[in-house]
């Protein structure tokens, strides 16, 4: 009885597998006449994607003859996997994701680097700790998301200061800020341009003084979000990639332009309905400093040295088995 069922089921299973195997493959190869592309973001719609949305809403993509579908990201989304599976043509990925992917044979190419300064920083109470040198971290309880980028960054910082994990107390951070509010931990990892804004508002209301600890100030420049595409895409549709990059960076540049501040906020408000105007304004000011810190550096510029440092950090911490020479996967941005 069971044998017969298996025999009957087998062709069905085989057919299913063949369908699955053949379907996405055929999509990658064919050129789409209408120049429709998908762009998978790293996170939910918030200030960190202001330029992406701006480029779409204000027709920067359309002017390049592109129809871009922007897809919201999230914790379970991985743009690099989607590139390979043909579900997206462009995406946003963090540098550690890119390095990990290339070390496992993924053919991903970085076409722009959105954040010149990593927004991942630490918020700390100035009345509880003074941090001028890295050595000042000694003896404190430090919040860290185990497995996250901040763990790699913090461990690099500790190593730089010749501190071991015994010199500090590491506190495992989850989504819940209570330990920070309760002052159980006074050194807490935050995204400087998003979470930190409303956390800061709360702390100010409580009359508490705080400051930010930026690892870059202490020589650790771990790259954050970048725009990626697949090698296949770059080889088969270089023009599309160029048009996309140009449109996107023009969008970001316009969005970060002080003169367009109101326009940017209005645009984002259509997507991020939860944040107040005050929050968005503050977030935009900070985001601008992270995306476009110096007028001399164009928005999107790829900081090769920082990428190399990021790779070295990951190598030192054995997050990758061997060097990948990440610079080979970085493509200089076009003039736009």
């Amino acid at each position: 009885m069971k044998k017969i069922q298996m025999q009957k089921a087998f062709p069905v299973i085989l057919l299913t597998i063949m369908l699955i195997v053949s379907f996405p493959g055929s999509r990658i190869g064919t050129a789409e006449a209408a120049e429709k592309v998908s762009y998978r973001l790293k996170w939910l719609f918030n200030m960190s994607v202001a330029g992406d949305i701006y480029a779409d809403v204000h027709q920067f993509f359309a002017r390049q003859g592109l129809k871009v579908t922007i897809k919201e990201g999230g914790p379970e989304r991985d743009a690099i996997r989607e590139l390979e599976l043909g579900r997206a043509q462009f995406g946003v990925a963090s540098a550690d994701q890119v390095i990990r992917a290339v070390s496992k044979g993924a053919t991903v190419v970085v076409i722009a680097q959105l954040f010149q300064v990593n927004p991942l920083q630490w918020m700390y109470r100035t009345d509880r700790m003074k941090i001028e040198r890295l050595g000042d971290l000694k003896g404190h309880t430090l919040g860290v998301t185990f497995g996250g980028n901040d763990e790699a960054i913090l461990k690099t910082l500790l190593a730089k200061a010749n501190l071991t994990e015994n010199d500090v107390t590491l506190f495992s951070v989850r989504y819940d800020y209570t330990p920070f509010f309760k002052k159980k931990v006074n050194f807490w990892p935050v995204y400087r341009n998003t979470q930190a804004v409303f956390l800061g508002q709360k702390l100010r209301q409580a009359g508490e003084d705080f400051a930010f600890f930026n690892p870059a100030d202490h020589g650790v420049r771990f790259v954050a979000n970048s725009v990626v595409t697949s090698k296949t895409m770059l080889e088969k549709r270089p023009d599309t990639v160029r048009k996309f990059t140009v449109a996107l960076l023009r969008g970001w540049q316009a969005a970060m332009d002080q003169a367009n501040a109101q326009k940017t906020i209005k645009t984002l408000q259509q997507y991020d309905r939860d944040s107040t105007l005050e929050t968005l304004q503050e977030q935009l000011d900070i985001t601008r400093r992270l995306i476009h810190p110096k007028a001399s550096i164009p928005v999107g510029e790829i900081d090769v040295a920082a990428w190399k440092q990021t790779e070295k950090i990951m190598l030192d911490q054995r997050q990758i088995p061997g060097p990948v020479n990440v610079e080979r996967y970085l493509k200089a941005i076009p003039e736009y």
Binding site: I17, V21, A101
Partner: peptide, 10 residues
């Protein structure tokens, strides 16, 4: 079947 990298499926 799809020639995917170890990153997508180890």
């Amino acid at each position: 079947g799809l020639d995917l990298s170890d990153y997508v499926i180890p």
